[in-house]
Amino acid sequence: MSIFRNARLFLIVIAGSIFLTGCLNTKSPTEKIYEVLESVVQTEQGFEDQQDPLVNLEQQEKKLYDKIIALGMKEFDQIIKLSDEALTMVDQRKEHMEKEKESINKSSEEFKKIVTTIEDIEDPKVKEKARNMYATMMERYDIHNELYSNYMQGLEYDKELYELFKNKEVSLEQLEEQIKKINESYENVLNANERFNEQTQKYNELKLEFYKQAGLEVKSK
Rank of each mutant, 00 (worst) to 15 (best):
Y203F: 15
T136Q: 12
K67T: 10
L164E: 09
F196Q: 02
M133V: 11
L206G: 08
M89N: 15
Q51R: 05
F111R: 03
L37Y: 14
E109Y: 08
I68K: 06
Y134M: 11
G215S: 06
S103N: 06
L147Q: 10
S185F: 04
V90I: 09
K62C: 02
E122V: 11
S220Q: 15
E146Q: 09
V40G: 02
R131Y: 08
M1A: 13
Y151P: 03
S17W: 07
A7D: 06
I3W: 13
V170C: 03
L54K: 11
Q50E: 12
F196A: 01
Y134W: 11
K81L: 10
T43H: 03
R140F: 01
D84Y: 09
P29F: 06
A70P: 00
K221I: 12
K101F: 05
E58L: 14
K129S: 15
L147N: 08
L161I: 08
K180D: 08
E205K: 14
G22R: 02
K63N: 05
G16T: 08
D77K: 13
E61V: 02
N193A: 13
Q201T: 06
L155P: 03
E109L: 14
D77V: 01
L20V: 14
Q60I: 01
K62D: 12
I114F: 10
K212R: 13
Q153A: 14
Y211Q: 04
E95I: 07
D158L: 07
D49P: 02
G16E: 12
V13F: 06
D158G: 01
D120W: 04
N188K: 15
L206D: 03
